[in-house]
């Protein structure tokens, strides 16, 4: 179990993490979601004791991580896959880590096997692709076969096959009772992987909820309708209990289906020029939630097509 209590980290006078409190439970994948620069990596470093919190505490199984006697049995973390001395072979890198926690040398072969890196184990890490480096990082995290696993943006740099692999891997860890805490800035990726979501923006907690709840709450269908008699139509719809907004020349409403809106308009002899259902995607819901907290906006291009998310299926 990972616990953050009032975790705060200042860099100069900038708050990177702002009074974050949450609990990450075992037996499930917890997604740590937020736009780039939201403070996800900093929070993970605080949990691991790599950065000192300005205020608050981070606890692993009730104790600060720095006090762990067998750290690698408790926690395995993959922060930045390139955070490794490239001059060493994968095997030497893993052997040194295993030795630091008195783990048997056989674990090195086990984790090389687990990550499919056995054949390249004697090669120097310098020449590895980002995907291979990710696997070395995962191998290192698994050396102590820890109860808690933390991954910072693990799908970055992975090919589609690798993405499916790590998704399956994390789900199977959780299924075996481990605590899996994984950060991402991709809602769609988390929707496929995480059971629970902790959403942050600008260092602040925005949501702490199950993925199912998050989806049903945030992807409600909305109806859009355009009419030359916009005023009258809005009044009629509101009388029927719909919540009506004016968006981009349309009336946007929730609480009524398209059929009901059409029937209602006919009943009152109101002309309709357009009527359709708008299903907001999870990505939209996420953007709406974090919109105000995004650190760097990409100019004003509200209708820019979302970049394709690789390997959804």
């Amino acid at each position: 179990m990972i616990e953050a209590r009032g975790l705060t980290k200042m860099f100069g006078d900038k708050k990177a993490v702002d009074e974050l409190s949450f609990i990450v439970h075992p037996g499930m994948v917890t997604g740590f979601l937020g736009p780039n620069g939201a403070g996800k990596s900093t929070t993970m470093r605080l949990i691991l004791g790599l950065d000192r919190p300005t205020d608050g505490v981070a606890l692993i199984n009730g104790r600060p991580y720095a006090q762990a006697t067998a750290p690698m049995r408790q926690v395995g973390a993959v922060l930045d896959a390139k955070d490794v001395h490239g001059g060493r072979s994968a095997r030497a890198h893993l052997r040194a880590l295993a030795q630091s926690n008195s783990l048997p040398a056989s674990r090195v072969d086990d984790v090389l096997d687990l990550t499919g890196m056995t054949e390249v184990a004697s090669k120097r890490i310098k020449g590895f692709s980002l995907g291979m480096s990710q696997r070395v990082g995962i191998a290192a995290a698994m050396l102590g076969d820890p109860e808690i696993l933390m991954f910072d943006e693990p799908v970055n740099g992975l090919d589609p096959e690798g993405i499916v692999w790590i998704r399956t891997f994390m789900r199977s860890l959780a299924a075996r009772g481990r605590t899996v805490f994984v950060s991402s800035h991709l809602m769609s990726e988390m929707a496929l992987t995480a059971d629970h979501l902790i959403v942050i923006g600008r260092g602040r907690l925005l949501a702490d909820t199950s993925t199912d709840d998050f989806i049903s709450e945030n992807s409600a269908a909305r109806v859009r309708v355009r009419s030359p008699q916009q005023q009258d139509l809005a009044r009629v719809l509101a009388e029927r209990g719909a919540v009506v907004d004016r968006v981009e020349g349309y009336l946007e409403l929730s609480g009524l289906r398209t059929e009901e809106v059409g029937d209602l308009a006919a009943e009152h002899q109101l002309t309709i020029h357009e009527l359709f259902q708008q299903r907001s995607s999870l990505e939209d819901a996420f953007m709406e939630l974090t919109g105000e907290s995004v650190e760097y906006h990409a100019g004003s291009a509200p209708h820019a097509p979302a970049p394709p998310v690789s390997a959804q299926q």
Partner: peptide
Amino acid sequence: TGGIRGTFTAVPR
């Protein structure tokens, strides 16, 4: 190289 983070994660003391 950034290896220090892996080192201190393995041995936080």
